[in-house]
Simulated scan of single mutants.
Amino acid sequence: MRVLNHLELESQMHRSGMGTAADQQREALSRAAPEIDVVTSPWTDGSMPDALFASWAYGDDPLVDYDIAHLNMAGPVSLGLARRAKAQDIPLILHTHVTKEDFRDSFRFSNVVAPALGVYLKHFYSQADLVLCPSEYTKGVLESYPVDAPIKPISNGIDLEPLEGYESFREATRAEYDLDGMVVFAVGNVFERKGLTTFCELAQATDYDFTWFGTYEEGPAASKTVRRWVQDPPENVTFTGWVDDKRMAYGAGDVFCFPAKVENQGLVVLEAMACEKACVLRDIPVFREYFEDGHDCLICEDFAEFEDALARLEADPELRERLGKNARQTAESHGLDEIGAELADTYRDLIAGH
Rank of each mutant, 00 (worst) to 15 (best):
residue 11 S to C: 05
residue 178 D to R: 10
residue 43 W to Y: 15
residue 292 E to W: 04
residue 119 V to W: 09
residue 25 Q to P: 00
residue 269 V to H: 05
residue 7 L to W: 03
residue 350 L to T: 12
residue 348 R to T: 13
residue 83 R to V: 12
residue 188 G to H: 06
residue 316 D to V: 09
residue 270 L to C: 06
residue 194 K to M: 07
residue 67 D to C: 11
residue 126 S to A: 11
residue 248 M to A: 15
residue 43 W to G: 10
residue 54 A to P: 05
residue 319 L to W: 07
residue 98 V to C: 13
residue 243 V to Q: 08
residue 174 R to K: 11
residue 76 P to I: 14
residue 8 E to D: 13
residue 338 E to A: 13
residue 281 L to E: 01
residue 310 L to A: 03
residue 315 A to G: 09
residue 205 A to H: 08
residue 8 E to Q: 15
residue 133 C to R: 09
residue 210 F to H: 04
residue 62 P to S: 13
residue 221 A to C: 07
residue 199 F to A: 05
residue 120 Y to L: 08
residue 312 R to G: 03
residue 39 V to N: 08
residue 195 G to H: 00
residue 309 A to I: 08
residue 223 S to W: 05
residue 116 A to V: 14
residue 261 K to S: 04
residue 67 D to R: 14
residue 43 W to L: 11
residue 317 P to K: 13
residue 211 T to A: 15
residue 142 L to T: 09
residue 176 E to Y: 02
residue 336 L to N: 00
residue 200 C to P: 02
residue 34 P to S: 14
residue 78 S to Y: 05
residue 305 E to W: 01
residue 108 R to N: 10
residue 283 D to N: 08
residue 239 F to W: 01
residue 310 L to H: 00
residue 219 G to E: 11
residue 336 L to M: 10
residue 272 A to K: 10
residue 263 E to V: 01
residue 264 N to R: 01
residue 96 T to P: 03
residue 224 K to W: 07
residue 153 P to Q: 04
residue 162 P to E: 07
residue 142 L to F: 11
residue 225 T to Y: 07
residue 285 P to C: 12
residue 162 P to T: 06
residue 126 S to K: 11
residue 87 A to N: 12
residue 67 D to L: 05
residue 177 Y to G: 06
residue 258 F to D: 00
residue 143 E to K: 15
residue 96 T to D: 10
residue 137 Y to K: 05
residue 328 R to I: 10
residue 353 G to Y: 11
residue 178 D to Q: 13
residue 145 Y to N: 06
residue 113 V to N: 03
residue 13 M to S: 13
residue 141 V to G: 02
residue 332 E to K: 15
residue 176 E to C: 06
residue 237 V to S: 03
residue 2 R to N: 07
residue 52 L to Q: 11
residue 215 T to V: 14
residue 107 F to D: 04
residue 123 H to L: 11
residue 174 R to G: 03
residue 185 F to A: 07
residue 282 R to T: 00
residue 132 L to K: 09
residue 236 N to L: 04
residue 264 N to Y: 00
residue 160 L to Q: 06
residue 197 T to G: 05
residue 284 I to P: 02
residue 327 A to W: 10
residue 3 V to W: 00
